[in-house]
Amino acid sequence: MFRFKGQLIVEYSLKVLTGMRIGGSKENFDIGGLDNPVIKTVFSLPDFYGEGKELPAGVPYIPGSSLKGKIRSLLEWATERVEEMIKKSGGNIKEAGRPCICGKCAVCVLFGTGDAKTLRKLELEEQPGPPRLIFYDAYPTEETLKNLEEELGPRIYTEIKTENHINRVTSEANPRKVERVPAGAVFEGKVVFRLFKEEDRQKLSLLFNGMKLLEDNFLGGYGSRGSGRVKFENIRLTFRSKDYYLGKGEEKSLGVVKSLEELDIQGLADRL
Rank of each mutant, 00 (worst) to 15 (best):
I160M: 12
I265E: 09
N164C: 07
E142A: 14
I160V: 15
G50F: 02
G6L: 10
Q127E: 09
K197C: 06
A106G: 01
R21D: 12
G267V: 02
L148Y: 06
N234E: 15
G114K: 10
L237M: 01
R3C: 03
M1A: 11
A269N: 09
P63W: 09
K53V: 11
K190M: 14
N92K: 12
V192H: 04
V192E: 13
Y136W: 00
L55A: 08
W77Y: 13
F29Q: 15
E150R: 14
L268P: 01
G6I: 10
C102F: 08
E159T: 15
G189K: 08
V82G: 00
E150F: 09
Y49P: 00
V59C: 08
L14A: 10
L206G: 04
F48E: 02
Y244N: 06
K40I: 10
I160P: 03
C105T: 04
R132W: 03
C105W: 03
R236P: 06
E95L: 14
I101T: 13
K146P: 00
E159H: 15
G247N: 03
Q127A: 05
G91H: 06
K53Y: 05
A185L: 11
R194W: 00
K231Y: 06
Q266E: 15
G129L: 02
K177D: 01
Y244A: 07
G103Y: 02
L268I: 04
Y61E: 06
L124C: 04
E159A: 14
N167C: 08
R3L: 05
G184D: 12
Y244M: 09
G220D: 03
L74A: 07
R168M: 05
K87G: 00
K212V: 03
G58K: 05
R120N: 10
E51M: 01
K5A: 13
F48R: 05
N234A: 11
G52E: 08
E199H: 04
G6E: 09
R201F: 01
S89P: 02
E123Y: 01
L17N: 05
E83G: 00
E199F: 01
K15W: 03
